[in-house]
Amino acid sequence: MSLTAVDTTTRLPDLSAVPAVDEVGVNERVARFQSRSIKTASKIEALKLVLSMIDLTTLEGQDTPGKVRQLCQKAIHLHDALPDLPHVAAVCVYPTMVGVAREALAGRDINIASVATAFPSGQAPLSVKLEDTRMAVAAGANEIDMVISRGEFLAGHHGRVFDEIVAIKEACGDAHLKVILETGELGTLDRVRKASVLAMHAGADFIKTSTGKIQPAATMQVTLVMLQAIRDYYYDTGRMVGMKPAGGISSAKLAVHYLVMLRETLGNAWMTPDWFRFGASSLANDVLMQLQKQKTGVYQSPDYFSKD
């Protein structure tokens, strides 16, 4: 591929040209990221950055308007005992809860992300998925997290998956589109890389690892492969694409490892909530506990932090 003007947003690239992933190399690289020594001052900055990148998420069948309002309160007031905290990047809810979140976050600089397209399975006709997306956007979502049709992708119908993402992107209008690959169902890192390339060429603003409903969810391995795909796509086209690992990142330490990986793979330009997000529900409290520990020197207990 060359840097000459190619209309990259509408053409399915040749997926057979996508480089193969060296799995052993990925594992070794990931192990390195976890052995960096991070000193106190950097750690505090990193923890605050993690907070600012969190998409505070509730995606349960049992979600109620009350639960969503509570989550929004948490997003606004992370931990008032600690001054100078950033707020989270967004709250992430089901389309039916977008209106509630909109109301609860009125006047706040916190985005509302909504999952759409028959989340989490993605097994619905395109018309339903489009309607799902339009409804979420109309209700006030400024970010849409869509799932790809893994069934179609695994069956080799790459074109259909591509066209679907293009159509959803159009339905999003001004809303940002995050494309969930559900890497836990793709099986190999090679497929993760291919799906990433496909999604980016189809117009994804972000690519995201998982729904959080399938194990394994986000791992450092798949995230690294996706980050590398983003890097190469940027070199090819000059367009920056964001990254969102989601599911299974619940400790502050692990989140900081992800930041190290981000820094060493994509560089400083991506180190903002505009280009990197964590999809998590319990991560925020662990980060807050670590920040409180840094301030007081005393190890903390979840008993003294609000639940979200």
């Binding site: 005393v298 190890y299 207990s301 008993d303 003294y304």
Partner: peptide
């Protein structure tokens, strides 16, 4: 000190 102060 840590044994005595840990909040959890």
């Amino acid at each position: 000190g840590q044994f005595a102060s840990h909040m959890d």
